[in-house]
Write a protein that binds this DNA or RNA. Structure first.
Lengths: 208, 208, 208, 208
DNA sequence: CATGAATGAGCTTTCATTCAT
DNA sequence: AATGAATGAAAGCTCATTCAT
């Protein structure tokens, strides 16, 4: 009651429902009706909160990106040792399974929104923020004396994000060639080589 | 007369037109009508050759994958020196521009077809063939004494393909953060680190 | 407000329009567009109420059958004398003209729906209800001492329904060999013979 | 080679194929393609022999009607005793099963063609020929002293054809309420009553 | 004589979106 | 704040029909 239109519970439910709906039907197959049903409202209500589908998708992407980035930043900031930071970053960058709705949605939205020039800036921004995060970790590692880099730190950070993206796509697309644990190990393999720090290893991921 | 229904000129024109249409509108926005117009035939003719859109897309993906893989294999086989092989592989793996229709189509189709379990096998197969290609190059390089690997060759090969995929996606999505030349340099950076071979450098690509 | 989706005026209008449309074009030629125009709504509205054409046809058939059967039952129940009952039944069983939309629709739908095993049960049910109605009249007539049967009452009832069906088809198909009045007289002819009751005569149907 | 266009084997095969196709899909669902495939020719060939679908259907109906009527007439002429004639007529008038292609086709075509004024004459003609056949049998029976009629012979003949039509429709539509044997018995029931000749009984039809 | 290739015309169906309530 | 009802617009697909060969 006290809330505004952009803070209502229904609005949040719709955004959440969109994530779920996208896991089931993809961005392309996404129907307002699906979102509405999952959110327990009518399609007209969806349009009451979001002028059109595109607006809804942008909002979902914005919130998702923020959540994704902020979570990682908080997590990495809480760890002092650069080696542990890097391990944690890698582990957190891999979608835990084919059913992770947030990550699925982000990949789908990247592909979808990326097709229009107008949104490229947003995507670029997210990518660069991720790179910056890795870059910071690498520099801390060098400062702590754990990492020795033979290539520019920026290049390494960029590659780490790229590997995350690629393997994330493999996992989210049900391409069983690269399961999550293997993806983590592969990225760690690169991180070890690039930092000359043999302690960058993937955590044992039993029980997944 | 000599040609069958699956070899006719019209059929080839439709497949070609699909590539072009996908560059313009993406897989999602793809309309049979666009394909038909670009191919200079009626929509009914498109359906005469392909039962439905999905069938057409699968065929485009199949032919595209084959062409992509076969071309690279032929190219790499023609080069004797492993260092040159690797340089060539990397250069060929990067879409030359945002307008490369074949590569755009392949990325789009990967995303689209990947959403259905039935096609995952095909996608996996393509991925593994690419990895095998890199693997062979790495092993030749070791045998020639040019490369020294400190991680399993399979892991390195896998990462090289993953980087290609990720940067390819960046280029094809018009995300100007990573232009083709930079992508090539970044992959080379990894290749140098992993092979301990300083001669793996991206060709100067002025004028792009 | 008080009305639900399955009781709305538009829904009824669509069903009514379907009857009219079927008189003009038959079941086969029936286009959603015709129904929509006759009902004064858009084709999308037709699909809003009925998932597809088949669903609409089934509903029309169901309502039509009910109406047809219920009307007759009420009418016959209101008449005490079995001879008058039988006369009324026969008169009501003959479509009054080639333009009777309800009856035309029922014949068309019988033919159409009957082609799929799934609906056979419905058709059978309608047939048996009609037979039961005639059977009751015959038994009342015997009880009242007006009718004398030399064949099983069930067989006679069955034949009366069959004759109705056959002549109804003749009338509805514009086969002018058997006009309504003649059909009524022919069925009465059988009824007289079977009941040995000479008072079963068709009403004079001048002016039709 | 020596044959003309209207006598060729292909032409006959197409007509035969139409009968079969109609059993499977009904008149409405009938596609030129089905006919062509069943006849082992291309759709273009179907149009080579028949200008359009309607023409083909008319031809099928014409040949079917002729065959149906001629067969019955020949059969009845070969039997001297009127009681046996009548029994034979009734037995031959009932489609032997739900899969009798010729009879199915005729019913379907009656419904289909009857919808257009132009063909009503043909249908009327067939009906009247059938009536004439029964009429002749009845008159012979009276002359032989086997039958005693209390209603006009024409009315009885008309009703017999009507019953045939109705039960034929029931059988051909897979309405299992009235199986062939029962239909025959019901018609005989009427025939007995109308002719006052107790010897008109349906043949035992075991094994059906 | 027969047909493969091609198409025009038309249909059902889907769906985001609007609006009175 | 929320929605049921309704729709315009568009897309995929089907099919009888044509015609050059």
């Amino acid at each position: 009651m006290g809330r505004r239109k952009d803070q209502s519970a229904a609005r949040a439910a719709i955004i959440e429902a969109t994530l779920t709906a996208m896991r089931r039907r993809g961005v392309n197959g996404l129907r307002v009706r699906d979102v509405a049903e999952l959110a327990g409202v009518s399609t007209a209500t969806v349009h009451y909160y979001f002028d059109d589908l595109e607006t809804l998708l942008r909002e979902v992407h914005r919130q998702g990106s923020d959540r994704f980035f902020t979570d990682r930043m908080a997590m990495v900031a809480a760890i002092p040792d650069a080696r542990a930071k890097l391990r944690a970053m890698i582990a957190a960058g891999i979608p835990s399974s084919v059913d992770d709705p947030l990550v699925i949605a982000l990949y789908q939205l990247n592909a979808h929104l990326g097709f229009h020039d107008e949104h490229s800036l947003l995507l670029t921004a997210l990518y660069e923020k991720q790179v910056a995060l890795y870059l910071a970790v690498l520099e801390v590692g060098v400062a702590q004396g754990h990492f020795t880099l033979t290539e520019p730190a920026l290049d390494i950070a960029s590659n780490l994000v790229a590997l995350e993206d690629a393997y994330g796509l493999h996992i989210v697309t049900p391409n069983r060639a690269v399961p999550p644990a293997r993806a983590a190990e592969l990225i760690c393999s690169y991180a070890r080589t690039a930092t000359h720090c043999p302690e960058i290893t993937a955590p044992c991921q039993e029980g997944r």
